[in-house]
Design a protein around this nucleic acid. Structure first.
Lengths: 246, 246
DNA sequence: CGACGTGTTGAAGACTCTCAAAGTCCGTGG
DNA sequence: CCACGGACTTTGAGAGTCTTCAACACGTCG
């Protein structure tokens, strides 16, 4: 793998310090992590791990977006997770990758060698506690996605994905004015299709339909603005007040 | 909820002692668990919890089968998990149920009051460690299921479900002779449909088709035998040697 | 400029769903 | 004992959604 060395960053200055697997750690615990961590950068499109690869590290996404996906023998693929900044990759106690991990944008990861990390897990309850919490959140998200994959129509799937991305984007920018939202799609039509269990043509058609009906506006292929977020939510098929994914 | 008091069982004699959340506990730790545990029995068909219910306990399934499901406002429902003996229900740190939990057979649960259990989690690393491990396994299973929901055909979905149940049944009975497998379906056609993201009619048709073609044999509606397991595996669409769900 | 990656659109077809009717099994009650 | 109702299942026919295959548009890059 071609990957670029990334300048060392103090944990205390880390942009995702408060959300990642290390968020509960005290300063003395951070020192221990600091000793076994190193940064790696992956280019957009680069594969970070193939299913079955031996992985000698676990890692936290510092910046960028990566995807987890599974493939059937005949090539059908399904995305099963999205790794956003602060998300954790890899499983303590397991050597092999169980998914294909791909960088969709440039990705910077904070890596820990697996053995020392596992050792730290045993001695530092704060890490294990946080990892449990994060894993439970991921499980909830995965199950929410199962509902989407199993029961939603193509249109509802698209609306749900856009709503999730819009909401996440808004929460990052803190620009949560009730009015119009704008964001860039971090995924190609094909990636959206793999995420939603659709074909890319269906994705394209449904996006066009939502645009035609004024639910969203497009500037270029990737830039989307949502004039009325509630209108978009109506299209998702979800309970509009119930528990939200992500 | 009508539920029957269940005779107290010593943890040491518990049939799922070695697989449940308590499997790593030492005998002195079991004593602590023993103090806060109690048994409850739920009848077949009974709802154990509704989404949004306040849950003042977490629990381990001792015997029987329960399902986790989510529902859209218009009634479409998707099963998002199956609770088998030794599986854990409830989330430490969360008051509300996030899924509907339903007993499909009579279910005996070993319950722990939530607060004391959370306290034990903090003081007893063995419990937290095991729970993390179980949660990671569930996450893997959920993602395997996402592949099924998003990309498999109806026929492949049915074959996958039968293969999973057959394999689990075989591992319980230790009757892993390579030859013919037999088992009872613990689910109605409707429950299978909710699990697979299909309609019950499609489930029925595909089961009939598999029977017609000799992949499976039916005795009554629920008893199934598989003359050639490899043949069934071919129908699942999976890599026949790769990592297996469950 | 032409190749390539990405995205859009159309037409035909496949698969699954919806609606409807009827069959099986089982327990209740006459 | 048998009729009856209810839960569960099977099967058919038609409709609809989504996929497949194909052509074309757009922008970047060599």
């Amino acid at each position: 793998m071609q990957d670029v060395e990334f300048g060392h960053v103090e944990c205390a200055d880390c942009p995702i310090r408060h959300r990642a697997v290390c968020s509960r750690c005290e300063t003395d615990e951070l020192v221990l992590l600091e000793e076994i961590k190193y940064y790696r950068t992956f280019e957009a499109g680069q594969t970070i791990a193939w299913t079955g690869d031996k992985l000698d590290f676990v890692a936290t996404v510092v910046s960028g977006i990566a995807t987890l996906s599974q493939t059937l023998e005949d090539g059908r693929t399904q995305m099963v997770g999205l790794l956003l900044p602060s998300d954790f990759m890899g499983r303590p106690g397991r050597e092999m990758a169980t998914y294909d991990v791909t960088a969709t944008t440039e990705v910077v990861m904070c890596c820990f060698r697996r053995r020392p990390f596992e050792e730290l897990m045993r001695t530092t309850p704060h890490i294990a506690q946080r990892l449990l919490e994060m894993t439970l959140d991921e499980l909830d998200a995965a199950r929410e996605w199962m509902l989407l994959l199993g029961r939603k129509t193509a249109r509802e799937k698209i609306a749900s994905l856009l709503a999730i991305i819009a909401r996440r984007d808004a929460s990052l920018k803190l620009s949560k004015a009730g009015g119009s939202l704008e964001f860039d799609l971090p995924l190609t039509r094909e990636a959206m299709a793999d995420y939603l269990g659709l074909t890319l043509e269906t994705v394209s058609r449904q996006v066009s339909a939502l645009k035609r009906e004024g639910v969203i506006e497009l500037a270029g292929k990737r830039h989307i603005s949502v004039p009325d977020f509630d209108r978009l939510m109506l299209e998702t098929g979800d309970d509009c007040d119930g528990g939200m994914p992500f």
